[in-house]
Design a protein around this nucleic acid. Sequence first.
DNA 1: CGACGCGTTGATCAATTTCAATAAACGTGG
DNA 2: CCACGTTTATTGAAATTGATCAACGCGTCG
Lengths: 229, 229
Amino acid sequence: MSDQDIAVLSVATARTRTVPARHDLILEGDVPGPVFVMLEGWACRYKILPEGGRQIMAFLMPGDTCDIQTGSLEVMYHSIKTLTPARIATISPREMHELLENRTPIALALIRTQLVDEATLRAWIVSMGRRDSLARVAHLMCELFIRARNVGLVEDGELELPISQIVIADSLGLTPVHVNRVFRTLRKENAMRVDVGSLVITDPARLAVLAGFDDAYLHRRVIRTVASQ
Amino acid sequence: MSDQDIAVLSVATARTRTVPARHDLILEGDVPGPVFVMLEGWACRYKILPEGGRQIMAFLMPGDTCDIQTGSLEVMYHSIKTLTPARIATISPREMHELLENRTPIALALIRTQLVDEATLRAWIVSMGRRDSLARVAHLMCELFIRARNVGLVEDGELELPISQIVIADSLGLTPVHVNRVFRTLRKENAMRVDVGSLVITDPARLAVLAGFDDAYLHRRVIRTVASQ
DNA sequence: CGACGCGTTGATCAATTTCAATAAACGTGG
DNA sequence: CCACGTTTATTGAAATTGATCAACGCGTCG
């Protein structure tokens, strides 16, 4: 992207706002509005099923964008909720349209970030389909560690996730009680520390072994996204 | 897209080739080459795990495109294999680059198809995480029915899938044995017929009920893709 | 003809869920 | 600052879904 593209992007994301934890940014059934760019904090995409269960489909951390839907899908098929207090930038549909129409490099960057997102979704499907609960949890921990490291969230080789075990359960298709038992194992392996409302990854290498983690899928992935430019 | 855009696309996809069933179009670890566009036949994205299990992450049918990776991801994290004899068009990386750089409407169309693909991947995650085996199979049947109908593959209200139960099992994270038992139920419900190497969806409405199918997620989805233009 | 892949069924096994109960941490209003 | 309601973590025991193991029939293809 040219300096000018970056400048335009900076202007578009200049308007930020803060939202509290557990706040829905958009709900299933809503017509997609502005594009959100996470600047601080964590959020997730999720869907509530008729029987009451919740399935989380993605975690959003700083640098991630949500809802490029603009003009494409009529309504949201899932909701997005903050997991922590967050600061987000919003780009109006009009601005977004203008950006995509007249700034080819930005459109191409968006295509690349979508490819990365798709790769992540596919990796989740592999985990949910063919990995047992231990490998599943460990694999997710690895993914989050690497993504977080790419945006500078890892300190002293450790990552603190401001996330409850319930959230992990809802993202892996497991039960909170079972996730708890898995974390007990991971703790015994000295791979993690577990506190209320917070998980600390202390030994990602150990986790990678337990997960059978193919670091190729994220290690070499495109690090910079539209938002982090 | 303008007439000219469509003309350029037609030229780019004019060169077609046929491949037999069970033929790998690209393997995990390969450097992405040309973009494939399915014109006839079925294929799937899949990954083989160290322990030998296979997980299918997507079904590709006429109109779908594979591997826009060009210039973005260094290597493939999964493979793509034909399930039936197929005819495909290929667009060279050079052509693709040219298309994306100079044909904004085409790039925007690509963004939209990626959004649809992402929505499908998320729906799979929901199924794998929170639906039992019966709803899972039924939901997949609904998805395939609607996608196939959108590209004119449904005849007399029925869809014949040239797919084995093993393939279904590998896409849903189930066992072939168990999938077989589920199909027995679906057959009893008169929702499907089952032959060797072929599944026939006869009553999609019944399937939708069994699946708790939220037809919003695909019903209103963007039907036309880059390829079907 | 024979090997192989696929569908089918039965019997048993095991991973994960469900149910239940307790305790610790947190936020809120008084 | 405390009481109380709520959320989360934790553990045990029982129940269940789906996996695993095993066997057989059948059609296809070389």
